[in-house]
Amino acid sequence: MPAFAALRRHRRLPKPSTLVEWAARVGYGARGFVYLSAGLLTLLAATDRIGDAVGTGGAAGWLAEQPFGRLWLVLLGVGLWAFVGWRALQAVFDADHEGADLKGWATRAGQALSGVFYGVLAAGVFEYLDEVGEAASAAADQAESVAENQEKAAMLLGLPFGGALLATAGLAILAVGIGNIVRAFRDDFDGALACPESFCRPATILARTGYAARGFAYLPLGVFVILAGLHARAGEVTSTAGALDALEAQPGGSWILGLTAAGLMAFGAFAFVEARWRRIRAPRELD
């Protein structure tokens, strides 16, 4: 009898593929929150409502300052780790059935790099848990982020051919940005959505706008890192938020920054669409 009862309890549990789908949808929602918040805060910076633009990490810092900040950070961090797990399934087990040809492997490599990025972001979210309630400004958070990036750049410059390695890292950042812009014009976004056509078309516009803006946001940072490598000066490295601030200082920069912010918000909104409508296919091994 106890074994039979245990079997019944086991049979009531969702299938592994169902759990994967739930985790993926939670992950897309967490990604949407990060980019929607980052875009909104960047828009406020462009209109001089707040001091500086923020990147994706700055959105977590802003969340830490809100009421119940610790609870929101835990929920966001768990959601981002769920998305990291989904990226791992996509990259390692080919959950999206991209195939084993060159294009498929390139897509899966991009998904793996995306998983690393969101893993770093998720770890940073949990680091903010120790700072909830402390009087730390957005400017201080950005300065700390820049200092960390410059420290990593200095370590890289200390290696043989460090300048070339740092410049190569900058080229990789540029490649990520250009890749997002290319995706904005070439990808079939509505093909991955299980939604009515009348809804998918506006969602596709959100996706194209969002990916283009996300790619554009990487470009200034890539240029700064390349210049730092060519000049062998770690002090020229900045963060994504710092690069956007430098962009704002140029003629017409506020308008460009505002458009970029709107695009990041579009990217976040599309992530919420994916959380609801994306076709989630668990790896065959789970079945």
Rank of each mutant, 00 (worst) to 15 (best):
A147E: 15
V120Y: 13
E151H: 11
L89K: 03
S114H: 09
S137I: 03
A203K: 03
F185S: 05
A135Q: 04
L219Q: 02
Y128E: 15
E134K: 09
I178A: 12
V116D: 00
E127Q: 06
A175R: 00
V146S: 02
L193S: 07
T168K: 00
L166F: 06
E98M: 08
R201P: 01
Q142V: 12
A192M: 06
I173C: 01
G110Y: 07
A139G: 14
A154I: 07
R186L: 12
K152Y: 12
G133N: 07
V92E: 03
A203T: 06
G210T: 09
L174E: 06
A172Q: 01
D101T: 05
S145D: 07
L159Q: 14
D190E: 14
P196R: 10
G170D: 07
Q111P: 00
V146M: 02
P160D: 03
G79W: 15
A100H: 11
E127Y: 09
F117T: 01
D188N: 12
T204W: 02
G85L: 11
Q111H: 13
L80N: 14
A172C: 03
E131Y: 03
L129M: 11
A82Y: 04
V146Y: 03
A123W: 14
N180F: 15
W86E: 08
G119D: 04
Q142Y: 01
L89D: 03
A175K: 02
R186C: 04
A192S: 10
Y128T: 01
D141V: 12
A212L: 14
A212N: 02
A88D: 01
G79T: 04
A212D: 00
G104M: 04
N180I: 00
A143G: 06
G158T: 13
R208K: 14
E127P: 01
V84M: 10
D94N: 10
G133K: 06
L157N: 10
R214E: 00
F185C: 10
G170W: 01
G104E: 09
L156E: 04
Q142K: 15
N180P: 01
D101P: 13
G177P: 04
L121N: 03
C195W: 08
